[in-house]
Structures are given as structure tokens and as C-alpha cells.
């Protein structure tokens, strides 16, 4: 057992997969010699060489486009978009082709690639370095979108993403990269993509979050538990798409109440989808209106105002209490 932060945990997963499977390759801007601007791919080029750890020219569309070709021919590419704000340039390739080869050929071709996308705010960075766009990326049928919340699930999700036979967008909450360490077991673990995880059982209210918001939400839940002894069921969504209907609805059927905490803008986000899913399958079990604590529908402000706009511990707490008090 070792205590690792999220950067080290993702790095470990990449390292393990590259060691196990010579078809795994890493490509992107600055992923080689520099080890990635966040150091997630540090040391890989030394171990696996330039042919498998590729410093590409500066072109996002080409990174995913060539990764699609590599995947079609049997490699397992793990590409990097340096920041979520630059990942839109990959969308023509992702939506137009990555997501479609399987259905287009009724399964004859498929595209087992992973695109890593560091995302989210709170790191005092320049424009385009703070967005949370899991909703946009989650809107393409045929593409899986996953988001770890801590070092341990970052490692297991990365392993699952590389082993997955389809395109997986693996979004990395930058704010959590080095925020805390966690025990990561010696042996590699994997999780099932498409499954949320109940990380704390409870009976009074279900609370769902993912990515960096998981950390904020955990604290809010703990504060509420201490303040009023509420029994809160906390769910880490982990997969944005395809979303885990069963875990979400089973929990809501049990607690009758739901709050969702989302960093991304309010409209058309995963929170909306979660609520619509509950509406479809568990509406009659609700005892209170569902609350969503979200970002706002504004262009992500520069870091001078950013902290005012990110969901805070206070907002998460008030949102959950509102549901409990109804």
C-alpha cells in the first residue's frame, strides 16, 4: 500500500498498463520529455521510449484522429487534451468518427481509445483552463465519459478505461490532482465503467456528486451529519455516460430525497439528467423537490472571480439542508 495523490495514481495506472500491454501508447502535446504539463505522464518516455510515448505536434484534432486510426488497427492509444478548454477541437473526430465506427460497421470495427481531459476550476489559471464540460462530451452516443474523484478510483478507472473496447473520455479534476493523498493498494484494481459508487450509506437523503465536487460535497455531508445527525447516502457518480440509472434510483427509492452538486453550468448538465432519470423511474418515491447546486450559465469567469462562481462548501450544505428540511 502506498499513499499517492491523483497525479501519481493516474501515472501509476498508465505505467502498469504500458508494462502489461505493448499495444498501449500515450500521445499528446508535451506528454513525453516534459512528462505532461501536470506531470501525469512523467517518466513514461524514459521507460517505454519515444515510439510509445509520443510528443505530437500541436494539433488536437490530429491527436484524436490519429488515435482513432491506431485504435482501429489494434493499438490502445491514450491521448491527452492539455486542457478541457482545448478539447472542443477534438469533437469533429470524436463525434464524427470515434463514436461511430462500431455502429457504422455493426461492430466490425471499434475504437478502443482513451482521451484524457484535465478539467475544472479552482487553480487560478488563464482563460480556457477552468471549464467543466462533461455535459458536452457526455452528449455523444457511443462515447463513454468518466471522472475520478480521488487517487484510488483514478487509478482503477484509468485501468478500466484502457481495457474498455470503446472510446472513453477520462476527465481529470485538476483541482484534486495534488489536493490530497489516498492509500492505493499494491495490486491493480479495476471498476466497472457505467457504475456509480455508494460511498456512504444513509436513509434521509441521497447526495450525488463527481470529480472535484466530491471533495466539497463530502465535507458538506460531514458537517451536516455532525450538526444534526442526518443519515446521508453519498454517491460518487464516476461515469457521466452511460449513467448508472439503477444505483441512482435505488438510492432515491430508499431515501425519498435527492440533492446533486455539479461544478458545470446549470443548464443541460449531468444534474439535469440525473433528475430526469429519477423522474422517469422513481418519481413517486420522492418526498421533497430535488435540489441541484450547480455552476451558473455564464461564460466561466477568469480566476479573479472564479471562487465566487464555483459551488462552495456552504452552497452544497445549504442545498442539502433545504432538501432535508422540506
Amino acid at each position: 500500500m502506498a499513499k499517492l495523490n491523483m497525479v501519481q495514481a493516474i501515472n501509476l495506472a498508465l505505467d502498469e498498463m504500458m508494462a502489461e500491454d505493448p499495444s498501449v501508447v500515450v500521445l499528446g502535446e508535451d506528454v513525453g520529455v516534459d512528462g505532461g504539463v501536470f506531470r501525469v505522464t512523467e517518466g513514461l518516455i524514459e521507460k517505454y521510449g519515444e515510439a510509445r510515448v509520443i510528443d505530437t505536434p500541436l494539433a488536437e484534432s490530429a491527436i484524436i484522429g490519429t488515435a482513432i486510426g491506431m485504435a482501429l488497427a489494434g493499438l490502445k492509444p491514450v491521448g491527452e487534451m492539455q486542457f478541457c478548454g482545448f478539447s472542443y477541437i477534438m469533437i469533429p473526430q470524436l463525434e464524427g468518427h470515434g463514436s461511430r465506427y462500431r455502429s457504422r460497421t455493426h461492430g466490425q470495427f471499434h475504437v478502443p481509445l482513451v482521451m484524457r481531459v484535465p478539467y475544472g476550476g479552482g487553480v487560478r489559471a488563464l482563460e480556457h483552463h477552468s471549464e467543466s464540460r462533461e455535459a458536452s462530451l457526455g452528449h455523444f452516443p457511443g462515447v463513454k465519459v468518466v471522472i475520478p474523484s480521488g487517487p484510488r478510483n483514478a487509478r482503477s478507472l484509468m485501468r478500466a478505461a484502457i481495457l474498455d473496447p470503446d472510446p472513453v473520455v477520462y476527465m481529470e479534476p485538476k483541482r484534486s490532482y495534488r489536493a490530497f493523498k489516498e492509500e492505493v493498494p499494491e495490486a491493480p484494481e479495476t471498476v466497472e465503467i457505467g457504475k456509480a459508487q455508494v460511498i456512504q450509506e444513509g436513509t434521509d437523503v441521497t447526495v450525488i456528486a463527481w470529480g472535484a465536487m466530491m471533495h466539497t460535497t463530502k465535507k458538506a455531508v460531514e458537517e451536516i451529519r455532525q450538526a444534526r445527525g442526518a443519515s446521508i447516502e453519498l454517491i460518487d457518480l464516476l461515469t457521466i455516460s452511460p449513467m448508472d440509472t439503477e444505483t441512482i434510483c435505488a438510492s432515491v427509492r430508499k431515501t425519498g430525497r435527492l440533492a446533486v452538486v455539479q461544478e458545470a453550468p446549470l443548464s443541460f448538465g449531468p444534474a439535469s439528467e440525473i433528475i430526469a432519470t429519477v423522474n422517469d423511474h422513481a418519481l413517486m418515491h420522492l418526498e421533497a423537490p430535488v435540489k441541484r447546486v450547480c455552476g451558473y450559465d455564464v461564460v466561466t469567469p477568469y480566476f479573479g472571480r472564479e471562487n465566487l462562481y464555483l459551488p462552495t462548501l456552504g452552497r452544497a450544505r445549504r442545498g442539502i439542508e433545504e432538501v432535508l428540511d422540506f
Binding site: 446549470l266 443548464s267 461564460v299 469567469p301 472571480r305 462562481y309 456552504g314 452552497r315
Partner: peptide
């Protein structure tokens, strides 16, 4: 200020969020 400049005209869905933002 970010609410002022999403669009050139105001929209109630955004304004409602502005009020929530200020209250929060």
C-alpha cells in the same frame, strides 16, 4: 459582471441565476 455580458440582451433564465448568485 459575468452575468452582464453573457449576451447583449438580458434573459430571465440568466437573471434568475444572477439573483441566486447574489443571494448565495
Amino acid at each position: 459582471a459575468p452575468f452582464d455580458h453573457v449576451f447583449g440582451t438580458r434573459h430571465e433564465r440568466i437573471e434568475q441565476q444572477r439573483r441566486e448568485f447574489l443571494a448565495e
